[in-house]
Write a protein that binds this DNA or RNA. Structure first.
Lengths: 208, 208
DNA sequence: TAGATTGTTAATCGATTAACAATC
DNA sequence: TAGATTGTTAATCGATTAACAATC
C-alpha cells in the first residue's frame, strides 16, 4: 500500500523520534512518547502503526528495534542516496556542505552552476558546468537531484534533469514544478514558510 | 475566521501565482490558471476564494488587483518583517543572504552565534554573541526569528527567544519545537523533505 | 441565445477521534 | 485482580468533489 502524503510525513517523524530514543539508550517506547516527540496524538500513532504493521505489546509498549525494523521496510531502509545539486548560489552552497544531510546518508556527488568562477573539479564536491547535467546524470545513473536555482532557470534545469533520467527532485526554486509519471518533485519554498508563520502569528492563539 | 493550515498554504500559493501573473501583465485571471500554477483543482480555487470573500464575475474570471487586494486582507499585507537569525553555520549563513527573502520584504536585522570567530559588528548583518539574544530581541521588539542551530542547542535558543518576546520562529533545527500560546513555531526539516521524496520515488507512479 | 465561467449546495470520501475490546 | 497500554471497530468531523444554479 502507498501511504498518503500526510501519513508518510508522520511515519518519517515517528522514525526520527524513535531513532533518537534509541540513541538515548531506550529499548521500549510507548505511543505516548512518540506522539509527544512527533507532535500528534498517541491514538494517531497507534492507528498509523497498526495500519502499517508495526506491532507492540499491550501494556508493554513498542520494542524500539522492531519499530525501526518495520518502519525501515515501509519507508525504505537504504538511506545512502547519491544526489546532484544544481545551483551554487548561497543556498546551494550551504546545502552542499549541510552536515545534517551527510549524517543521514544523503551524499552530494556533484554540483552544477553556470558561473565560470564557481566551477572546480577538485574540492569535496566537484562543481561542473550546468550544460553537463544531462550527460553526467546519465553516465552516473543519478536518481535524485536538489535544485537551488533562480526562478528563471528552473524549467530549463528541470528538463535537463528529466532528460538525464533523474527520478526525484527536491526543488527550492520559487516555482512549483509538476512531477510526472517518471519523475517526482518535492517543492520546498522557504518564502512560503515565512509567510505561513507570519499568518499564524497574526491570527492564532494556538493551543498549548 | 482562521483558515486551517492547509488552506492557508493554498492561499499563499494562489497569491504568489497571481502576483506572477500580474508581473506578466495580466489583469484578469481564471480559476483554471491559478489552479494550474498552484497545483490544485480549479474547483478548489473557486471554493477557497468564495469562502474567503475573493469575488470574481461569472464568465469574466477574477480581476488580478481585486484578488491581491482581498488576499492581502486575509493573509496580511505588510510584507516587511524584521527577523533575527540564530546560528551562522552553513545554512544560517546562506539564509542571511538569501535573495528571495530580501525580495519579499523579509529582512534579517541581526544574527547570533556562539563561535567568536564569526562575530562581527559590521557587515550587512551584524553577528552578535548568542548570549545577547534575549536582550537584543527585547530592546528591538523583535517579533520573528529563524533558527538554524544544531539539535543540541535548539531548546536553549528557543527559550532565549521566548524570553525575548519573540512571537514566531521558523525552525530548521532537526528537533520539533512545540509552539505555545504566545509563540508559534513552523518546523522545517530538510532531511525529512529528502526522505519524503525518496519514499515517493520508490513507491509511486504519480498521476501526470 | 448559447457558452463559459463563477458560486453554492449537496454528496462523497477520507482522516481523525471516540468508544471499547483485548491482554500483558 | 486491577491497571496500563495496544488494537480495532464505529462515529464524527472536515475537506474535497460533484452537481447544478446563476449570470455575464
Amino acid at each position: 500500500m502507498i501511504a498518503t502524503d500526510d501519513k508518510t510525513r508522520r511515519l518519517i517523524r515517528y522514525r526520527s523520534a524513535v531513532r533518537r530514543m534509541k540513541a538515548m539508550g531506550l529499548s521500549r517506547v510507548y505511543s505516548e512518547n512518540i506522539a509527544d516527540a512527533a507532535g500528534v496524538s498517541a491514538l494517531q500513532v497507534r492507528k498509523d502503526f497498526s495500519e502499517e504493521g508495526v506491532r507492540g505489546v499491550r501494556r508493554g509498549g513498542y520494542q524500539v528495534d522492531s519499530v525501526l525494523e518495520r518502519l525501515g521496510e515501509v519507508l525504505g531502509r537504504d538511506t545512502a542516496h547519491e544526489f546532484v545539486l544544481v545551483g551554487m548560489g548561497s543556498l546551494g552552497t550551504a546545502l552542499a556542505k549541510y552536515q545534517a544531510f551527510a549524517q543521514h546518508g544523503i551524499k552530494i556527488v556533484a554540483a552544477f552552476d553556470t558561473d565560470a568562477k564557481k566551477l572546480s573539479e577538485k574540492g569535496r564536491v566537484p562543481v561542473l558546468h550546468a550544460r553537463e547535467i544531462t550527460q553526467y546524470c546519465k553516465k552516473h545513473r543519478i536518481k535524485y537531484a536538489i535544485m537551488a536555482v533562480p526562478e528563471a532557470e528552473a524549467i530549463g534545469v528541470y528538463e535537463q534533469l528529466a532528460a538525464g533520467g533523474v527520478k526525484g527532485i527536491l526543488n527550492f526554486a520559487p516555482v512549483r514544478l509538476r512531477g510526472g509519471k517518471r519523475l517526482v518533485v518535492n517543492n520546498v519554498n522557504l518564502v512560503y514558510e515565512i509567510e505561513h508563520l507570519v499568518y499564524f502569528v497574526d491570527h492564532t492563539r494556538r493551543k498549548v
